[in-house]
């Protein structure tokens, strides 16, 4: 028989008086840290890439394709042809047009129930994995500022829908050639369409969407159409984490593809 060592300090929380005296932070034997480590790595890479691209302020438009990081492009200094909503912001604004709009998709993802889980676990280690003690001495969750602002998620969801419409429009504009004539299509068109589709799937599978379409009802049988919509959204909702990742990669890869075109590294294969 071996005795556990009681000399060290008790692990956070689970060492509260009356509980079984076990000093280890966790007794898990599986590699519980792999998942949060991968999540942290991927999210961090995305943030680095997105920040660099947002500040780069170049190579975001390769006629007729506009990068999702820069759409809608509303600043005075937008690349020619990229401003299909008009240059709504005056010429006093000197910075990258991406910075004007990034708050919406960023806010949408930051307040997303799935991403919250992902970054609370992987960045904030709260908790890093189930039944692994977190390092924080106190915890108040989402009960006070700033985290109580997570309740604004639905506003970003509404804004996200507007962005989806714009990005879908961008994809349709991709059916032009570089001279602006309609009825053409290239690999970029496919890339933009895929990106828009993934964004729609991500938005429609959102928990706020599920609540809006029927989740808030008490009496489904009185609202048969909303019940059916809710059922459909619920089915998508079970795959929300998947769509969250796919659409994140989608946005980054779409932007990267357009950068390759804009820098002239490759040229867009045209189908017709």
């Amino acid at each position: 028989m071996t005795q556990t060592d009681h000399s060290g300090p008790l692990a956070a929380g689970t060492g509260a008086p009356g509980r079984a005296h076990i000093t280890l932070r966790t007794l898990r034997t599986d590699r519980w840290w792999v998942q949060p480590a991968i999540t942290a790595g991927v999210l961090f890479s995305f943030v680095i890439y997105a920040t660099w691209r947002a500040f780069e302020n170049a190579y975001y438009y390769a006629t007729p394709y506009l990068s999702p990081f820069y759409s809608p492009c509303v600043a005075e200094n937008c690349a020619p042809g990229s401003d299909d909503l008009g240059r709504l912001v005056g010429d006093w604004y000197p910075l990258s047009p991406a910075l004007l709009i990034l708050v919406f998709p960023l806010g949408f993802r930051m307040t997303c129930y799935y991403y919250r889980k992902a970054y609370y676990r992987s960045f904030w280690l709260s908790p890093p994995a189930c039944a692994v003690a977190e390092p924080h001495r106190t915890y108040t969750g989402e009960t006070r500022a700033p985290l109580i602002l997570q309740n604004s998620h639905r506003w970003f969801f509404y804004a996200g829908l507007v962005f989806n419409v714009i990005l879908t429009w961008d994809a349709l504009l991709g059916f032009r050639n570089s001279d602006g004539d309609w009825g053409h299509m290239g690999l970029g068109t496919v890339v933009l369409l895929t990106n828009a589709t993934l964004l729609w799937l991500y938005s429609l599978s959102c928990h706020s969407c599920r609540n809006t379409f029927g989740g808030r009802l008490k009496h489904f049988s009185k609202h048969p159409i909303r019940y059916r919509t809710w059922t459909f959204v619920s089915r998508l909702n079970t795959r929300h984490p998947l769509f969250a990742w796919l659409s994140l990669f989608g946005v980054a890869l779409t932007d990267f593809y357009i950068r390759l075109l804009a820098t002239g590294t490759i040229s867009d294969p045209t189908f017709f």
């Binding site: 919250r116 609370y120 908790p127 189930c130 969750g141 989402e142 009960t143």
Partner: peptide, 15 residues
């Protein structure tokens, strides 16, 4: 009941 304390990290669902 403290619903706001939950940060939806889903361990309850996992177990």
């Amino acid at each position: 009941y403290g619903l706001g304390y939950c940060n939806i990290t889903k361990c309850c669902t996992e177990v």
